[in-house]
Design a protein around this nucleic acid. Structure first.
Lengths: 218, 218
DNA sequence: AAGGCGCATTGATTTGGATCAAATCGACAG
DNA sequence: CTGTCGATTTGATCCAAATCAATGCGCCTT
């Protein structure tokens, strides 16, 4: 099994063994649903490969993508009785599933683990605050640039540093993450490419002028 | 000392005594700063009276209010070395301060407490996701209505249920929370009042048509 | 009572991004 | 190679909210 590196770095060998004995490795096909907003929360997931889209829907169909989960990320921490958002696979996804019962028992038994999960949750909260600033106060161009730099950093932290940022999600997903329309996302990408700030490549974007981009994100 | 009711409901008497021995009760005058974004994080706070404005600034002065803390709320949980946002008092505020050292020691020693704090953090994360939906996908009118209903619920949960929602913060604070301008907030309030959905009273708003408001917030 | 000072409201105008409407591109099936 | 279908790009127009600009209203202080 893939090691749960991000959560378990500080665990002892026996704790790790216990954790892995409770994890159900699961595969999801492209587009498959991991769980749905409002449904009873049965499992917590740790993504081990692929990218997951996390989103909330309004009754009239408006959608807000609240995040993209990459390998190492935990889903369903903010679990009450029901999931607060939906999650589905972008491309193929591998994840470790923990039943809710196993998860709560584990957390009660292992303060180490709880501490790591808490750090995880507070980091997520910090990211959420940054996303609020982005959604509430930034322009379309700033939103796109912050998004690209953010994704680049996240891939880099996972050991995939590159000037080419993979974007496996659709333009619509990006638009719904940034509070824009697909047309505005497309136009803004085109404009940034025309100015040679980025280069649009199949499946992603190459960062051509990181200085200008960092200055805008400031 | 005021009991730390929200965090400590599940603690034993000796744990509660320990907690209170480490808390420094502090008073803040109207407009006083509890802490500033980017400064070294020295303390964690539990608000016991009053309302605190939490916000992030961009270098050019654009501001995003990420939340309003009411009595019982914890500030500085998402603490790394530096505070991720600024906090200042709206009106007079009382809070219990815990030094960072005391806080981390306490958390390491008392898994009960950590579990409560983690629940707190995940609840905050859920609220943050809802705020993302609001900021990214809702209209000005929907934003205002969701805000009013949200504040009403929060006061109700604190034992102050009322059709009159206290709004001790300025219109600018509300605008910066909802990703709007002060003019749009003012105009939208006026329109809702003209339609008899709300009644604007000194220091707050009276909910006149909760059915319509809940329908919009849906 | 008069002046000053923050807020808040109201009105006129502008605009960034949304909406409406075609193309164009690419991947895949036949 | 050709048609189809979804995703993306591009263009024309519109509109909700921003911006610019007074004005009004409490509430101090003098």
């Amino acid at each position: 099994m893939v090691r749960l590196v991000s959560v378990c770095a500080s665990l002892t060998d026996d704790e790790l063994a216990l954790l892995e004995s409770l994890a159900h490795p699961t595969q999801f096909a492209a587009g498959a649903t991991l769980f749905t907003q409002g449904r009873e929360a049965h499992s917590v997931y740790n993504v081990t490969a692929g990218v997951v889209r996390l989103y909330k829907l309004l009754s009239d169909g408006r959608r807000q993508v609240v995040g993209f989960a990459l390998p190492g990320d935990f889903l369903g921490l903010a679990m009450r009785d029901a999931y607060g958002f939906s999650a589905d696979a972008i491309g193929e996804v591998s994840a470790c599933a923990f039943s809710r019962g196993a998860y709560t028992a584990l957390v009660d038994a292992k303060p180490h683990l709880l501490k790591r999960l808490h750090e995880f949750a507070t980091h997520e909260l910090t990211l959420a605050h940054e996303q609020m600033m982005l959604l509430g106060r930034r322009t379309a161009e700033e939103k796109l640039i912050c998004f690209l730099l953010g994704m680049q950093q996240r891939w880099a932290r996972l050991g995939k540093p590159s000037v080419t940022v993979p974007l496996p999600m659709t333009r619509q997903d990006i638009a719904d993450f940034l509070g824009l329309t697909i047309e505005t996302v497309s136009r803004t990408f085109t404009r940034l490419a025309r100015e040679k700030t980025i280069l649009i490549v199949p499946g992603g974007v190459r960062v051509m002028n990181p200085e200008r981009m960092s200055a805008v994100a400031a």
